[in-house]
Design a protein around this nucleic acid. Sequence first.
DNA 1: CGGAAATTTGAGACGAATCAATAGCTGTGG
DNA 2: CCACAGCTATTGATTCGTCTCAAATTTCCG
Lengths: 241, 241
Amino acid sequence: MMRLAPVQSGRQPAVTRLAALAALDRVSLARLEVAVESAHLLKPREELLSEGSAVGEPQLIVSGWAARVRVLSDGRRQFLSFLLPGDLVGLCSQPRPLAVSTVAALTPLSVCIAPTADPGSPLADAYAASRALDEAYLLAQITRLGRLNAQERIGDLLLELYERLSLAGLAAHGAFELPMTQETLADALGLTPVHTNRMLQQARREGDLRLNSGRATLGDVAALTRKLGRTATRVSAADPG
Amino acid sequence: MMRLAPVQSGRQPAVTRLAALAALDRVSLARLEVAVESAHLLKPREELLSEGSAVGEPQLIVSGWAARVRVLSDGRRQFLSFLLPGDLVGLCSQPRPLAVSTVAALTPLSVCIAPTADPGSPLADAYAASRALDEAYLLAQITRLGRLNAQERIGDLLLELYERLSLAGLAAHGAFELPMTQETLADALGLTPVHTNRMLQQARREGDLRLNSGRATLGDVAALTRKLGRTATRVSAADPG
DNA sequence: CGGAAATTTGAGACGAATCAATAGCTGTGG
DNA sequence: CCACAGCTATTGATTCGTCTCAAATTTCCG
């Protein structure tokens, strides 16, 4: 169903994720581990990238959560996507790129400069796959907001996060850390915090999921997946997903 | 405000758009014009790409409209983005990429194989900028669906289309061809056709815009832009937008 | 322990969906 | 040139989902 990350790899989750996206060679792995060593820390709400300003070197999320966010002039806020360990930020092939969205830390965040990938190298393939996944998650977010109701949005988003965190070895048995408030979740789901709260309670009553103290637990991943008609995200025929 | 396409260029709109994204040299322009010559035609509803199947060579939309679309198991449909002349389809740098969304023609559609861009060439820059714009439009769609109400969604989408078509020289004076039914529009806006119809009437009554016989006319582009707090989409510091 | 933040609850209003019917348009063939 | 079929657009009445506002409660953290 989904390629599970080896539990006892001793690798950083970020490296685990990229290794799951392409068969990395020793050189790539070594470069990644060196890069991860020199990660620096950001506090929650600090920005990695600011909409409209220049994009610098591509960065790799080592640990913690970040999000792409857009804020309207009247204060309405929409999270565009979440960025998890192993995700890349600011990867683009233009000469003088400008950020199309602000990226901000949701939790204490550890990021490093993403090691350069030689064209054709396994690392380049991993980056390309990561980029394709980013796009797929944006499309999923569009469908969620456009055509799913509140209950469905919650289930679908949590399944997506479970799938993504599993790639990095950060989720198992339907449970994972979800370090955000209901208000943040609401801004990702295009709902109000009040309604999000009510729908979360309903989902808990129905046994679909539970959220407490920063942790999400899905009752039955397979059943929920079926109920929502979800299919695992696949972007490459070389990768079994 | 927005780089307008030269009206009397004699170029194909698709070439006009790419030339607006990067300063194309003679070689690039020549390749584009050759490629465009060998375009082939698709009928409405025919698919350029099918979700989950392999992506072949990158294609360039020469004329007509297409859309990325996702259809849920119960028939709900969501358009993810529109593809206009000069837009690229299936551009990715993975070894064996799979399409993450179906792409279907909305109108009679002329497409060609996108000419290969040598790394570092102006054409490669244009492709990169096009790709960055694609992403920006996806983010805009997320914000529309997540945080704008029906009226705002309509105005915002039409302004975006106006901005995009202007790049290709296909819009002027707030007016452009909009070759789709209200039902299609509704599936892009995450609304029902009935409500879309009512909101379109309201927008017409308020003088914001008019839709008739496949043509959209915006009353006052600048005023509408201001009202919605929109800013022109920019992806490169090298390009004035 | 105290204060702020986060979650939960209630009541009511509003936006958008739904269902159903009608009217208008477009192209087609007799 | 008209009649018809099949879309597309429009209208009305009603329901439903989500928002809003306001006030508890609970949890977290210094």
